[in-house]
Design a binder for these strands. Sequence first.
DNA 1: TATCTTATGTAAGATTTTTTACATAATAAT
DNA 2: ATTATTATGTAAAAAATCTTACATAAGATA
Lengths: 410, 410
Amino acid sequence: MGKMPNSADLAALENAGGILSLIATGAASSRAELLQASGLSRVTVTQRLNALMACGLVRETERTLPSGGRPTRMLAVNAAAGFMLVANIGETHIHLAAMDLTPAVIVERTLPFDIESGPEATLVQMAEAFALLASEAGKNDAPLLGISLSLPTPVDFKRGRVVGPSVLPGWDEFDIIGRLHDRFVVPVYVENDVNLMTIYEYRRNFPAADDILFVKIGTGIGSGMIAGGRIFRGAQGAAGDIGHIQFPSPDAPLCRCGKFGCVEARAAGWAIARDLSARGFVAETARDVIDLVEQQKPEAIMLLRAAGRTIGEAVSDAVSILNPSLIVVGGTLARGGDFLLSGIRELVYQRCLPLATRDLSIVLSGSREDSAIFGAAYLLLDDVFSPARIEALMKRFLKMKSEPRYLDAG
Amino acid sequence: MGKMPNSADLAALENAGGILSLIATGAASSRAELLQASGLSRVTVTQRLNALMACGLVRETERTLPSGGRPTRMLAVNAAAGFMLVANIGETHIHLAAMDLTPAVIVERTLPFDIESGPEATLVQMAEAFALLASEAGKNDAPLLGISLSLPTPVDFKRGRVVGPSVLPGWDEFDIIGRLHDRFVVPVYVENDVNLMTIYEYRRNFPAADDILFVKIGTGIGSGMIAGGRIFRGAQGAAGDIGHIQFPSPDAPLCRCGKFGCVEARAAGWAIARDLSARGFVAETARDVIDLVEQQKPEAIMLLRAAGRTIGEAVSDAVSILNPSLIVVGGTLARGGDFLLSGIRELVYQRCLPLATRDLSIVLSGSREDSAIFGAAYLLLDDVFSPARIEALMKRFLKMKSEPRYLDAG
DNA sequence: TATCTTATGTAAGATTTTTTACATAATAAT
DNA sequence: ATTATTATGTAAAAAATCTTACATAAGATA
């Protein structure tokens, strides 16, 4: 009676199939690190690793670490073991890509997008493009692991649906996952673009920062949050909506949302373009604004600096509420560099308590590429490589080894 | 080669010692629910449960659930199996209590507190009081499981220290845990009072709401957040600081923090008391304000309503950023009921996007008691009952059974 | 080259957990 | 009382994982 269960030092949740997750996230890249991070015994890790290497998902790098004795052999996900289809639906274009497991782009394509065309037609068009990309990327028998989409609207991630009215008329509550799953029999994920850009910054650029606020300043303004290493979505997936924080004032401009005085109506790309137009410039989009800034037009620079301060007001509210350790500023207007950043810094350091700002960095996003598609890839990989799914995936890979036929459900 | 590991449907993280956690949190209260929630086999659950019942931590309730067949016997934590020492350090008093595992108060005591007396003297005084409470609560051999403190300042929970200057001079970076651990050889936890009140609301009143914003409106203003079922602390434990969100205006009042126009300086208890004093009333604290409101003084009611709208501005920012599903308003001024709440509701529903408000409830906290000490108890129990600690705890209980001597380290 | 050091693999037995199969318990309905 | 139904316990074998112990690998250093 009363035999006590032996609860090994379970390092969080990565016990069963988490080996692959650990490697994929970079949390562990050698056998020793895997032992430490997983809490499993060397025998078990070896066995799992053998299975993962046998099915081609993991490989040993050429790289080794000197250690005073036999050098440590480094491990990595075999980028060529499979591929993913991802797409970022923007307001004028759809950027589609097939990506390997790095994740890195294998082939890509951009389609023009008419925002009025609705989900039915758009998804049919995308499926065609995806099929072409897949036949290209799947040439050497690499299987398709899943599809991941980025949308410029609030998304209820769990259900994979656009929620609420948005810039995409007709998409509200449309069953995107179902439609794509009919064509490609793989997992399908749908997420908001800002959240995906946030995930990208965390995973690729700042993996050590566990509390990140990412602010996207482009045609619109939005933000995403990494809290304790996980994306923060809120109850409806609407968290991070700093663009519609309002500052009342006598001259409060009308916002796209129908209210007056929103940050977006004062400082987003479309608002600055509006103000530049009123001053006789030709500007419609965030890109037009940045072009004028890069041409050193004083009015454009002035308006961008003012926008920085306005955004700084909203960001300082977010800092007071969220207490992040890092703020990353991205989006088209971020190309304005310090013209934009100085105002944000000024307001945050002025308004927030010293405790919240003393270890806070505010930096520009380094990437100019379409980071949302990378975020979409990370999101997909995180789930496909999760302990709950890994077994099914490995079985599929082993079957492929024995019967090397590429099967397209399309 | 290539034997596949069997990764049982691991339902989150509750695999090893989590049985007790599941019962304690109310996530499972019968054997069948334990099976489902833990993902373990019936044999294993039975075995664990036997061990937990053998050492007295869990008991079968008299209550049963009719089921068409043999009724389900309900399980519960044995409230009398141990006790905790908790305290809420306020600005004028310290409320100490010994609590059972319900958690419910066994004995309590209130000490006057001079905010200037510093941590050394205060902790000595508290330790004395704790020792008395412990001798009372430990009479029938119940062991002391831990100590948990609530402080009215930002706390770095991981290190258990007050961070940054605050209303408690001299406490910054003081080693509270070390000092108490010297006297009582048990785990010691320290957390901010608002976070603990938030935990209380979640655990006791709204266990089904996974994204809660709790707003405390008393002498000061602060907030706490439950996100996905976990308390949200931010990088330094300073998250939820809505009291110092600033709204500039020509007449912006000076705040305790040294800045102008903070929400707190406009709408906290001390600010309303200031305004009432200027109108000839005698008021210093939040309680004085509420007394005047309950006496139906029009000026007090007017100022409280105005405060509601001001707080509503900050809360609407928080709603845009956090997207909670529930807002609970507590603190002394919450006794003002709809006088306070209507302004908050007005601003939130006016300013936030429909998506964020369509499923949002804004309610008053029901409890008048000192909810921070209950939150402190829940916080302690969560950790002491966690898989990582359960084994040690059970061993201790079994040893007590064989050698029933109450050992006080004091 | 010999030795030291750390990395890594593997066999064998112990422990934990699951699965399977069967038995018993307690209530409602007949 | 009998039967149906759901709850619960237990034994035995299978599977997974851990511990222990030993062996081998590969570079650094003397």
